[in-house]
Design a protein around this nucleic acid. Structure first.
Lengths: 163, 163
DNA sequence: TTTTAGTTGACTAAATCGTTCGGGTATTCT
DNA sequence: AGAATACCCGAACGATTTAGTCAACTAAAA
């Protein structure tokens, strides 16, 4: 699970489709203007989103993109995986050919971390994000409150925004 | 919070230092050989880690790197932030100059997502990862079991490993 | 049939990733 | 003192990714 601005652009665009798609398809030109994302870049992203079954396209005048599934069933992980090819952080590629005493330390390590991040991003749907967005000044995600954290040891001085 | 192989290399190297640093400093050459990471790349990473107060260096023969803080207080988020400069996914840069009806939709959206991912990665320490690593065939992180997930909607066909 | 809007492909500048090389400096050992 | 060790620094590199541009195409509606 890679996490870059590319995936964030895709999620932002998908939220736009969700919010403005209640009556008819949403054009990429409209998304481009509202979210300030290059139209041609959106074309690339939505090409992948369409091939991964995230959206459906309607051609011709009045056309655009609709969600292919209900907003409550499309997760952030789905969107990111559609546009961001997964990477393999383990040097053994999942096989057991790592030698000596530390047999594939990175493998199990990142498998666990990946699994959890994936699990979290797979638990947040577009509907969740839209619901949060439509509150006047919500700030935090409601669904996020549902996750507990072991409380200890964090305490980083950096501001949380724009991390 | 960007998530690439660069940060993973850094965390892997830090775990190596934690595991092998119980008696004296750990050389980059040893980490390079054990973890199969380029020595010069390690030098770049540890330069940043040192400047961010993650490790301390000992020069000369018998030298190497030690953890600057206790392994239980160094989180994965700390390490990743040290080597991976943060990105700004919001187009307004945190200020309120985004116009029209959707005032900075991406801003609050990613602020929330970032906050949660940061919160999770900030809750896993090097000590946790080493503890997990030293179990013969542990698999999952124990600390991960402490996080609940709303259960719904995920169901992705992809394997969780190497996401 | 003209316009709209998706579809595809090639192509680009810039940044990042991981690596290699070549020199430094501080410390310890002989 | 001098050699060996190991951190320190910066430049450069090919490969990949990012974000964007351009052009030509097809399907559908007015």
């Amino acid at each position: 699970m890679r996490l870059t601005t590319k995936g964030r652009f895709a999620v932002t665009a998908m939220i736009d489709v969700t919010m403005h798609g209640v009556r008819g398809p949403v054009t990429l030109a409209a998304i481009s203007e509202r979210q300030r994302i290059s139209l041609s870049y959106l074309e690339q992203l939505f090409g992948k989103l369409r091939r991964h079954g995230m959206v459906e396209s309607v051609r011709g005048p009045g056309g655009g993109y609709n969600l292919a599934r209900d907003a409550g069933t499309v997760t952030v992980a789905d969107v990111i995986l559609a546009v961001d090819e997964p990477i393999d952080a383990t040097q053994c590629g999942g096989r057991e050919n790592c030698l000596d005493d530390h047999r594939c330390m990175t493998h199990e390590l990142w498998a666990g971390l990946n699994a959890h991040i994936f699990s979290y991003l797979g638990s947040v749907t577009l509907a969740d994000l839209v619901r949060q967005q439509q509150q006047p000044r919500g700030g935090e995600l409601a669904v996020l409150q549902d996750h507990r954290h072991p409380a200890g040891s964090a305490a980083s001085p950096e501001p949380v925004t724009a991390v």
